[in-house]
Design a binder for these strands. Sequence first.
DNA 1: TCAAAAGTGTTTTTAGTACACCCATGG
DNA 2: CCATGGGTGTACTAAAAACACTTTTGA
Lengths: 245, 245
Amino acid sequence: MKYDPREYPPFAVAVDLAVFTIRQGVCAVLLVERGVDPYAGCWALPGGFVRADESAEDAATRELAEETGLAPFPGHLEQLRTYSTPNRDPRMRVVSVAYVAFAPDLPTPRPGGDVVRARWWAVDELAPSTERPRLAFDHDRIVADAFERVAAKLEYTPLATAFCPAEFTLGELQAVYEAVWGVSLDRPNFRRKVLATPGFVERVEGAAPQVRGRGAPAALYRAGKATALHPPLLRPEGARSFRVG
Amino acid sequence: MKYDPREYPPFAVAVDLAVFTIRQGVCAVLLVERGVDPYAGCWALPGGFVRADESAEDAATRELAEETGLAPFPGHLEQLRTYSTPNRDPRMRVVSVAYVAFAPDLPTPRPGGDVVRARWWAVDELAPSTERPRLAFDHDRIVADAFERVAAKLEYTPLATAFCPAEFTLGELQAVYEAVWGVSLDRPNFRRKVLATPGFVERVEGAAPQVRGRGAPAALYRAGKATALHPPLLRPEGARSFRVG
DNA sequence: TCAAAAGTGTTTTTAGTACACCCATGG
DNA sequence: CCATGGGTGTACTAAAAACACTTTTGA
């Protein structure tokens, strides 16, 4: 490769975060309202520029801690993909590395910096067929890709546990699957499947705290050591899977 | 977001291509030998810088056509992930968006530009336990990630057909699976599985050309319209799946 | 005592596996 | 005529789906 400067035009590199959680049985994503142009007043994914001395992963981790106020972040963070359409940001050439985070129920973040407001949006509120907010840049596309990634990851990894607190019941775990996939699952079969998969969950000895409502007290589990599910827990036919835009 | 220039330090953005094919029943990846420092004499993935007016996808498509000499490229191209460790390129800050390509057997590319040589490397030649060539930058990591992506994609998409010519026999399709996964599959069961999956392959009327060796003439198929396999074709336990480095 | 949630059991259906076997072709 | 690859059939096994049922708690 030659050193002709025209061969490597300068780009700004940013990260965008699609942080998902389950609140009241509904899958939701965190958006912030932009206070400045471009797209002032629009909702956008939280994010920021990658600094000169850090990797995109570092930038995503840093922004995630800033945005949620929690360090270390208790959930799961992974790279989604990179968006690089030339005019996706009208100000300048910005390449954005998008990340997906799976979070247990977090406190609603306090606004700060250029952010006017921040709130959780149920994924249904952003679904294509509904009246939905206008998102900044290509963030509707990123949200759709991110949500599809979340739904797919639940099939072949145990990452549904990343939506739960450190100790959880099988009912809570099932609620994660049902919220993300938009279906109801057969409880006995779900239970058998989870317990039959080595390393998915580990039993925690001790009674279940009876703060979670009526019914018999449930056994508590924590996340196991497996990183993949063999065989996978495939979503049923009618499961939700939307494309925004 | 403010317009403080320190917030968006300049980066060079590059694409790297991990192009895989099946040759003589072996899965192989295309590498080029670098002629200039850094890493002169090392083998590297083909790639180049993203130009000011194109997306990373465009750059990958362009490089793929240049590298293989074929436009349009007959196989499948998809984004893998982005690598952004601060010192991955000693010259300057380079963020690289890596792509994976699935190719039918291509002619060995002619060198050109800064490339001294180019050749196909069997994935076994790059496996961790063997004496293997030193790869430039973090390309051993990218190759490993890319190969894992290929092996996984065969499970739940019909993209094995992208390794085959436009018309192919079920034996050739099975050979793709066996080469990538490093296992032998039961032919009757593989056949049933493929034919039972709607949209995986379509029958092509007409006889099979008897140029492919001995045995009875095989029926010809072409790729179907499905984009995913329901249910997936999971690799057996002993299937190959290596991490380089 | 009833609704809600946890947990167990059983039957049916489906998908996957492991084979044995015949056919067509080229050397 | 036999090795090689294509194609069919069939029995066995494992997993998934559907659903009935008991238990434990809070209201």
